[in-house]
Structures are given as C-alpha cells and as structure tokens.
Amino acid sequence: MNASLPCVLFVDDEERILRSLRMLFRGRCEILTTTSGSEAAEWVRRRPVHVVVSDQRMPGMTGVEVLREVAAQSPATMRILLTGYADMDAVTASVNDGEIWRFIEKPWVARYLVDTVEHAARVAQHDFALAVARLAVPPPPVVGNAPIAARIAVLDNEGSLAAQVRDVLPAAVRVEHAFDLESTLELLADHDVAVVIARLSSTDGDVADALKQLKRLRPATLAIVVSSLRDSRLLIGLINEGQVFRFLLQPAPRELLRRGLAAALERHAHLRAQSDLLQRHAVDAPRQEPIATTTGRLLRAWRRLREAATLRSA
C-alpha cells in the first residue's frame, strides 16, 4: 500500500456494506474495515487513522459511542457518521458527544461520499503532520476556559436565554444580547465574537441559514443552538452546512449549557492560537443563499459582516 495514501476506517455491522465501501474506495486510500465498535477503537489506539466512517446502529456500541471514543483517543482523526436512521436522538448525540464532521445518510450518493471522505482525509493528514511538528515546539497553553477578551453573542428574542448564559459564565466573559438577526449580524461585524448561541424557534426562519453562512465567513466562531424543535433534517443541515458545535433541547439544562459554552470558548481560543486547524471547520455549501429573501436592512447587515470578514482575513 502506498504510504502517502490516507488511512480510512469503515465501521458497519453489515459485511455487504463494507464490501461496497471497499470497492468504492479501492486505490483511493488505505482501507480498514470492522464490524466491531470496540475493534475500531483499538485500531485508532494502535496506529494513525485519518478518517473513521461509522454506522450508527450496531450491536455493542453505537456509532456515536465509537466516534466519541475515537475523538478521545485521536482528536486529529476526522469523524463521519453514516447511517440509514436519522433519528433525532442519534443526530443530537453525534453533535454533542461525537463532534462529527459530517452526517451522511444511506443510501449514500457515491460521488458525495467519496468527495467528503477525501476532503476529510486531506484535513486529517495536514493535522497529523502539524501534531508531529509541534512535538518539538509545543504551543503555549491556553490558561482557563474563558480568556478575558472572550465575547459571546446571544440571539434570543425573549431574553431568558441571555440571562441564563450570563448566570453560568465567569464575569470576565462579555455576553452581548441581540433580540433579532440583524442586531446579531451587526454585532458580529463590529466585534470578534467567540461563540454565537441562538434560540431557534422555527424551521422557516433566517436563523438556521444565517448560522450556516456565518461558518463560511467566520470559521473560528462556534455556534450553539437551543431549540424545542425535534427536527433531524434541520439538525443534519446545521451539522453539514454549519458545523454547529452543540445542539441543546429547550429548556437547556444549566450544567449542559455551562459545559457546552466552556468547551466552545476553549475551542475558539485553540483555533485562534492555531489557525491551521480552521480547515477542520470547512462546511458544505448551503443549498440556498440566506440573503436571497431578506429585507433591505438585513441585507445591509449581511454586507457589513461580509466586508468585516474580508478585512479580518486580509
């Protein structure tokens, strides 16, 4: 096997699925396969694995449990959940526990699956090489979960979520409350915001589309969604097109909210210190541009945010 090829591990309890995947990826990567979640975790412990693609419904360990173990053993390994059952609990867990990069449904579209895995492999190869290089000169540690300059934007038309966020965070973190999307975009244009936490109350609004577009403009900004909507299609879109960091069902339990915010602030600080890692936050193109049907005022806010993102990257 060509040593320059990435290593991809496929995990599925059906041998026929594994055979199809071997045929699809033959010559594109070094292929490992297993029907056992525990064996998959052992593979990652024993050797570098660039991408793990796991089915969700398996005996012994679910796909989310497999990917959570992979993340703990090898953070640089890219994680993809491949499943024919898009139930809400599994999709939510894939975000909050497995921090997956993509959620792909069976039956898969071959070209999309190949492109997604190959993209993930390139990112992982880059990050594995960076990790080796940093062994000689490790980066300075990030002290604490919430740097003094950290700023959080809360999009909440009621106000109770913003109050809850302030209650669970240290006073050093600045929490900005925006009642509507326009105000949130203006805030993002004017400031370096570490985390956006948004209350999502409708599948038809602009908020979900805005979060997807925001990830393309500001990849280091993490998004947390709080919603009462149990819509797996909506959440899969937020994963693949917006790399949402956490999804919490409303009302968000205090401790889950605190842990999610602390993890997001720590991840943002890590991304700011090591900008090469931003490749891991690449997203699929949204199916539609969020500004297509917006009002004039909201369109101006989007333009300001785009211009600010361009200036920051220059």
Rank of each mutant, 00 (worst) to 15 (best):
V195I: 11
E118G: 05
V91I: 13
M23C: 13
L67A: 03
E255A: 02
R47T: 10
G98D: 09
G296R: 10
L211E: 01
A263C: 14
Q274Y: 07
S94C: 13
D127P: 01
L155P: 01
A93Q: 12
C7K: 13
D192P: 08
V51H: 03
E42R: 14
L278G: 03
I291Y: 08
Q250A: 14
L305F: 08
E158M: 08
L181R: 10
A309Q: 01
R218S: 05
H281Q: 13
M58Y: 06
Q56N: 11
W101C: 07
L181W: 13
L81G: 02
E105F: 07
R151I: 07
Q243R: 15
A76T: 09
I31S: 12
D204Q: 12
E182L: 06
A124H: 09
A263E: 15
I80G: 03
R79D: 12
H270E: 15
D206G: 02
H119C: 10
L161H: 02
L82R: 03
A90Y: 06
A252R: 10
E266N: 15
W302Y: 10
A133N: 05
D13Y: 07
I80L: 13
G242K: 10
V123S: 06
R174K: 08
R57L: 09
L130N: 11
S313T: 01
L5H: 14
A252F: 10
L265H: 01
P253E: 14
L187G: 14
M58I: 04
T293G: 03
H177S: 14
L298E: 12
A223C: 11
I239R: 00
A292F: 00
T310F: 06
G27E: 15
A172C: 06
P251Q: 11
A72M: 13
R303F: 01
A263P: 12
S4F: 14
K106F: 05
R300T: 06
A129N: 07
M78G: 06
E99G: 13
V226R: 04
V143C: 09
V109N: 11
D167W: 06
A90Q: 09
L185D: 11
H119T: 11
Y112L: 15
S54M: 00
A150F: 04
R151C: 12
G237C: 04
K212L: 09
F179I: 12
E289D: 15
T92S: 15
I291N: 05
V66P: 11
R258S: 08
R174G: 05
L135E: 15
M1F: 02
K215D: 07
V168K: 03
A282W: 14
T62F: 03
A41D: 12
A198G: 03
L256K: 10
S313P: 00
E255L: 06
P147N: 01
L18K: 08
V44A: 08
W302L: 01
L299K: 12
A162K: 02
V44C: 09
R151V: 12
V143M: 13
A149Q: 11
Q274A: 09
A172K: 06
T34V: 07
L169R: 02
K106S: 07
E42M: 12
W302N: 00
P286D: 09
A3C: 11
A194L: 05
W108F: 15
P141F: 04
V207F: 01
Q243L: 04
A133D: 06
L234S: 02
T294N: 01
Q164S: 14
F103Q: 08
P147A: 01
I31H: 13
L248R: 05
A252Y: 09
A309F: 00
